[in-house]
Each structure stands twice: as structure tokens, then as C-alpha cells.
């Protein structure tokens, strides 16, 4: 057994990224597989929505609230649009917007967090207190307030939620970067005369990336839920753009008639949230060094 282990001095062939990934995937538990399959299928739906969807996004096909039939597998909504088509386009809009938002808040919060960890002092203090103020106001209410001031367009939603959510990224990236900036290799880079961006992106970022990626997944769920909630409240993505949150609201009256239509977009939201969480859990477990006691 020990012969198989890597001994010092013995040269091993470099493990490629692809081989590493394959090895990782082979050990993935069923829940993670489930999550990955769901996420990939959502991604495919979102990317190829116009090819997959049977009708146009806001095409009125007939009467409102039609029950499911061969023409409309999931029936029609309150304006007579095909529900299945709306769901597929909804994936594209809701997920797309959520993804852009998280990427934006990730880069903003992550960059500022690492900068705070590197420079400490007044920069850290000022940024830290601003973040405190932002976090002390309930996010949804704050977002509603800002949206009603600047008006709700997709761009505004993205910018506002990205800004509010970057506070979380700031906190987590600052705290993990704090543990890395004290390492000798960061000091060595500093002594070499490297500039701040090298230290940030080449020395620190690769070492805190696993934590941030896991956080990325979690934040994606939250952003996605926030957007859906905003849409449900009428201040999110505006009609006629298909979006799961507003679809729930628009068809909510059907619930009283015992119809499942409004549950479909809600279910789509729930399924994706669960799937992302499964994958994040597995990823965190892998990267945190937690070990199953055997």
C-alpha cells in the first residue's frame, strides 16, 4: 500500500486539470450528482430556450387558464400564453439575471475584501463600517426602496442587488484573505517588489478561491430567490418578460381553484435552489478538509 504513495524524490507525472476533475467527480455522492444534473439541464434550457420552447415567449395562444392538453402541455396562463414556453423562457431570464448579479457582486465584494485584508488600517475600517450600515437594513426592504426610487428595470435590479449582496462577499473574502496575507509567501512577494494586483490575484486569490466559489453558489440561491420575491411583489422583472416570480403572482388566483399551474414556477425555483445547495455542500466538504471519520 505504501509503495503506491508518492514518495519524496520519486517523480510523478503531472496530474492534469481534466484528470483531477474526473477523479473528483468519481467520488461525488448521489446528492451532488443529482444537483449537477439539475443545474446542467436548467442551463441547457436557459441557453437554448428559443429552440426548445414550442411557442414564442409572449405569444398569446388562446383562451386564458386553459387546462393541459396536447397543444399546451401545461395549459395557458392568465393571458392565454403557453405555460411551458413561459417556464422555459423564465429559466433564461431569472437564472441569467441572477448569474450576472452574483458575478458582479462577487467581483466587487471579493476585490474590496482582499484589498481590506492587504492594507488593513483606515481602508479596512471605512469599508467595514459602510458594509455594516448596508447589512443593518433588511435586504429586501432596502432593495424595494431603492427600486421604487430609481424605477425597476433589469439593469437596475442587477445593480442594486449586486451592490447589496457584495457586502456578504466582502465579509467572507476579507476574513479568509486575512489568514493568507500573513503567510510568508505573501511577504516574499512583497519583498520581491510585486504590485498589489499580483499579490491579490496571483498569491491570495488562488488560495481562497474554493471558499469563495462555495459562497458563490450559496449567494446565487439567495439572489435568485430575492429576484423572484421582487418579481412576485411586482417590482422585479416587468411583463411581458417571462419570469418565475411574476408567474407565480400572475397565476396565484388559480390556487383557490385547486389548479397546480402557479406551483410550477414555484417548484422550478425550489428545485434549482435545492440542486445548487447539494452541489455547494459537497464542494465545501471537499475543500474544507473535513474528513469522514472512518
Amino acid at each position: 500500500m505504501s509503495e503506491a504513495s508518492i514518495k519524496a524524490g520519486e517523480v510523478v507525472a503531472r496530474r492534469t486539470m481534466a484528470r483531477n476533475a474526473l477523479r473528483l467527480l468519481r467520488t461525488a455522492p448521489a446528492t451532488a450528482w443529482f444537483g449537477m444534473i439539475v443545474i446542467v439541464s436548467y442551463g441547457v434550457l436557459a441557453l437554448f430556450a428559443p429552440l426548445i420552447a414550442p411557442y414564442g415567449e409572449s405569444q398569446v395562444m388562446g383562451d386564458a387558464y386553459l387546462p393541459s392538453s396536447t397543444a399546451h402541455w401545461l395549459g395557458t396562463d392568465q393571458l392565454g400564453r403557453d405555460m411551458l414556453t413561459r417556464l422555459i423562457y423564465g429559466a433564461r431570464n431569472t437564472i441569467g439575471i441572477a448569474l450576472i448579479t452574483v458575478l458582479l457582486s462577487f467581483s466587487l465584494g471579493g476585490t474590496l475584501g482582499i484589498l481590506s485584508a492587504i492594507f488593513r488600517g483606515w481602508l479596512d475600517q471605512v469599508l467595514g463600517r459602510i458594509v455594516d450600515v448596508f447589512m443593518s437594513i433588511p435586504q429586501l426592504i432596502f432593495a424595494l426602496m431603492l427600486l421604487s426610487i430609481v424605477g425597476s428595470s433589469a439593469t437596475n435590479i442587477i445593480l442594486i442587488i449586486a451592490l447589496l449582496d457584495s457586502t456578504r462577499f466582502y465579509r467572507i473574502s476579507r476574513s479568509v484573505a486575512m489568514n493568507v496575507v500573513v503567510m510568508d509567501y505573501v511577504e516574499a512577494a512583497r519583498l520581491r517588489g510585486e504590485n498589489t494586483s499580483w499579490i491579490m490575484f496571483r498569491e491570495i486569490l488562488p488560495n481562497i478561491l474554493p471558499t469563495l466559489v462555495a459562497e458563490f453558489g450559496l449567494r446565487f440561491c439567495f439572489v435568485f430567490l430575492t429576484i423572484s420575491a421582487l418579481s412576485f411583489l411586482g417590482l422585479g422583472i416587468q411583463p411581458p418578460t417571462a419570469d418565475w416570480g411574476s408567474m407565480v403572482r400572475e397565476n396565484a388566483t388559480l390556487i383557490t381553484y385547486g389548479k397546480f399551474t402557479p406551483l410550477l414556477p414555484a417548484g422550478a425555483i425550489a428545485l434549482l435552489t435545492v440542486a445548487v445547495n447539494f452541489v455547494v455542500d459537497w464542494f465545501l466538504h471537499k475543500t474544507s478538509g473535513l474528513r469522514d471519520e472512518k
Binding site: 503567510m183 510568508d184 509567501y185 516574499a188 519583498l191 496571483r202 498569491e203 488562488p206 488560495n207
Partner: peptide, 15 residues
């Protein structure tokens, strides 16, 4: 130039 006590912390584990 400088060489450190602990090579574990003096080398970036990702490089």
C-alpha cells in the same frame, strides 16, 4: 533576498 524558516508557508501551495 530572504529564505524563511518554514518552507510550507513560504511557498504558495497553488504555484
Amino acid at each position: 533576498q530572504m529564505i524563511y524558516q518554514s518552507p510550507d508557508t513560504a511557498l504558495n501551495p497553488r504555484q
